[in-house]
Amino acid sequence: MKAKIFASIAVAITGAVLLYAVTDFPNFGDPRSPANAGVEGGSPSASLYYIENTYRDTKVPNLVTAILADYRGYDTLFETVVIFTAGMAIFAILRVLRNENAPSAPSPDPEASNRTIDGDHHRIIVGITCRIAVPLVQIFALYVVAHGHHSPGGGFQGGVMLGASFILIALSGSLRDALARFSEASYIRLASIGILIYAGVAFLPLVFGRNFVDYGALKGLLGTDGEEMARSHGIFGVELGVAFTVMSIMFAIFANLSTRGRLKGGL
């Protein structure tokens, strides 16, 4: 009870200070605000440069994709590393590798480990629907990854959708079904390969004597007309790496959390 009174006081003071501070913010939807147009008499906003020059630099109409993978390539590389590290941390915290047969904590539903997408009549409607839905989800996810240059999408979004398709298999049937299609060894491998693809594509320009993540240097290697198209292809390679890592880590998080690290039984 005492804690709640102190919490209320702290929250009330912080909230009052913040509410007072936001009255000095630019108006909502103002195109002339400092974030949108820069400071008057000072430096212009970076967003104006992106809007006016991104297509000239990279031939990518989707500004978000181009900024994410090219202008802010370092940032995104290490965001992907953060996701990979989170997956490995969950593996280190939860995964039970020894005494796999010890009956320490029995699964709440003993049939859960035997349930498959094919065998259970109680789940036949859910199973068949998901069997139809999963390939469609995966094709759409690949489209989101590959078409991120021209429409909303990219590696993070497509990767989450690909991971969700495997989670859907695990939810509609059993985790064993999902692991038969995407085993522990392969998702750890694929997460590492994703980082390697990203870091590799980002590293290649160094070989040609240019800066890290300067994909324009790959012009000769990719055989494109100009450096702009080489940057566009470089962005696609990077997005592919992000998609692999995000897909694997999303599924790894689900598989480990839903089984307390035993990868058996499950929900």
Binding site: I51, V64, I67, E79, A86, I90, I249, L257
Partner: peptide
Amino acid sequence: PDAIANPVPHVLMLTAIVVGVATLGV
């Protein structure tokens, strides 16, 4: 430029959402 939303906050928050999910998992 006034007819196109500012892309920079979208980029920053896109990665923040996915990293948020991963750290929530931890």
